[in-house]
Design a protein around this nucleic acid. Structure first.
Lengths: 218, 218
DNA sequence: TAGGGATTATTGTTCAACAACTTTGTTTCG
DNA sequence: CGAAACAAAGTTGTTGAACAATAATCCCTA
C-alpha cells in the first residue's frame, strides 16, 4: 500500500482512539514531522479523512477533528435507522455476516464482564465490539457502497462518543440490547429483528442526546 | 472557494458531461497543464473525486474515470432502493422538496417534448432532469449525510449511462414513470408512492442491465 | 478600553528533483 | 516461433524548499 494510504489509516485510528480531542486543530507541520512525511503527503491524507467526515477543513484555517453537534447526531441516527433497519429486514438468516454478529455480541459481553466501573479504556473496547456488531449487520445487505457509508457514519458517531465523559452509561446498556436484537432476529425472523433494532436505535439516540444536553449545561 | 475546490468541481462537471470516456486514464501532467495548475494541486482534486467514486485510483498507475461494472450497477440500485423508498415512505406531503420534485418532472417533460429522436445532448438533459427529481426526493429525508451519499451514487450511475449508446431508451420511459411516482404520492400518500417508486427502480435497473448485457455481446 | 494597523504564523500553491514502480520494447534462449 | 529475462522509457509517489494568500496576534494610538 501507499504511504498516504497507510498514513490516512494511521491517522484515522488515532483519531478514533481519541488521540486528539474532537474539535482540536491539527497543525500540518507538526503532524507531518510527527509521522516523518512531507507536508504535501500529509495534506493528501487529510483530504481523504475530510471526505469521510472525520476531519473538518476550513480554508486557510486548516483541519480540525470533527466535533459532531446535536444536529449531526440526529442526522447520523436518522441515517443509521434507514440503513440498518432495512439491511436487517431484508436479510436472510443464513448470511455469513450473521456469524460475525454473533462473535461481536460475545466479544462485547466478555469485555463488559471484565470492565471495571470507570475504566474508560475497557468501556471503549465494549463500544468497539458493539459497533462491530452493527457493521456486520449492515454487511447483511451485501452492498459495498452502503457498507462504506455506514463505516463513515460509525466513525463520526465515535467522535460524538468521545465528547461524552461517562463511557459506561454509553456502552453498557447496549450490550444487552444487541443481544436482544440478535436473538430476536434468529428466533423470530427479520421483521421482528428489525423492530427490535429500531427500538435499540431510538434508545441509543436518546442516551447520546441526553448526554449532549447535560454537557452543554455543565 | 479554493482553487482545489473549484478544480474538483470543474473536473467533476467535465466527467459527468462525458468529456472523458469512462475507463479512460487521466494523465496527471496533461490535465495539470490543461487547467494551468501544479501537479500537486491536481492530485488533491483527484483524491476528492476518487473518494466520491467518480475516479478510480490504482497505485502507480494513476487515475481513470470510473467505469461501473454490472456488479456496480446492481449495488447502486440496491442502495438507491433503500435510500429513496425509505425517504419517500417516511415523508410528509408538505415538505418543501415536493415543489422541487414537481419542477423537475415538468422540466423533464418539457425537455422530452423538444427532443429529436437521436439527439444525444437533449436526451442527456432529460436524464439530468430525471436525476434532479430523485435528488429532490431524497431531500425529503432531511438528512445531509444521506443526501451526500445519494449525490455520489447518482454521479456514478451517470457514468454508467455514459457507457450506453442509446440515450433515448434510457431516459424517455422514465419521464412518465417519475410523473406516476409523483402523482401517486400526492394523491394516495407516502406508502403508495413508495410502492410506485420501487417499481420504477426495478424497471430502471432492468433497462440499464439489459443495455449492459447487449453491450458486452456486440 | 476600543479600534486600527503592522507583525507573525499558518495554510495554499508551485516548482524541481528524485525514488518507486509499471509498462513497453528488445534480446536471448529453448 | 514463442516465451522468459532483461533493459529502457514513462508515469506516478514523495520530498523539500520557496513564495503567495490568508488568518490570528500583538502593539500602538486615540
Amino acid at each position: 500500500m501507499n504511504q498516504q494510504g497507510m498514513l490516512a489509516d494511521a491517522l484515522r485510528q488515532q483519531i478514533i482512539d481519541g488521540a486528539f480531542a474532537p474539535g482540536s486543530r491539527l497543525s500540518e507541520s507538526a503532524i507531518a514531522e510527527h509521522f516523518g512525511v512531507a507536508r504535501n503527503t500529509l495534506r493528501e491524507a487529510f483530504r481523504a479523512l475530510s471526505e469521510q467526515g472525520l476531519l473538518e477543513h476550513i480554508p486557510h484555517r486548516g483541519v480540525s477533528v470533527a466535533s459532531p453537534s446535536i444536529a449531526d447526531v440526529i442526522d447520523i441516527y436518522r441515517a443509521r435507522r434507514i440503513i440498518e433497519c432495512t439491511a436487517l429486514q431484508q436479510s436472510e438468516p443464513e448470511h455469513p455476516a450473521v456469524q460475525r454478529m454473533q462473535e461481536a455480541v460475545l466479544a462485547a459481553e466478555a469485555a463488559a464482564r471484565d470492565a471495571l466501573l470507570d475504566d474508560t479504556e475497557t468501556w471503549r473496547a465494549v463500544g468497539s465490539a458493539n459497533m462491530a456488531f452493527h457493521v456486520a449487520l449492515v454487511d447483511l445487505a451485501d452492498s459495498p457502497r452502503l457498507a462504506r457509508t455506514y463505516r463513515d457514519l460509525a466513525a463520526e458517531l465515535r467522535l460524538a462518543f468521545l465528547k461524552i465523559d461517562d463511557p459506561r452509561s454509553l456502552h453498557e446498556p447496549f450490550v444487552r440490547k444487541n443481544r436482544a436484537v440478535l436473538d430476536t432476529f434468529l428466533a423470530r425472523g427479520a421483521q421482528a429483528g428489525a423492530a427490535e433494532l429500531e427500538r435499540y436505535l431510538v434508545q441509543s439516540e436518546r442516551v447520546v442526546l441526553g448526554a449532549f444536553a447535560r454537557m452543554q449545561l455543565g
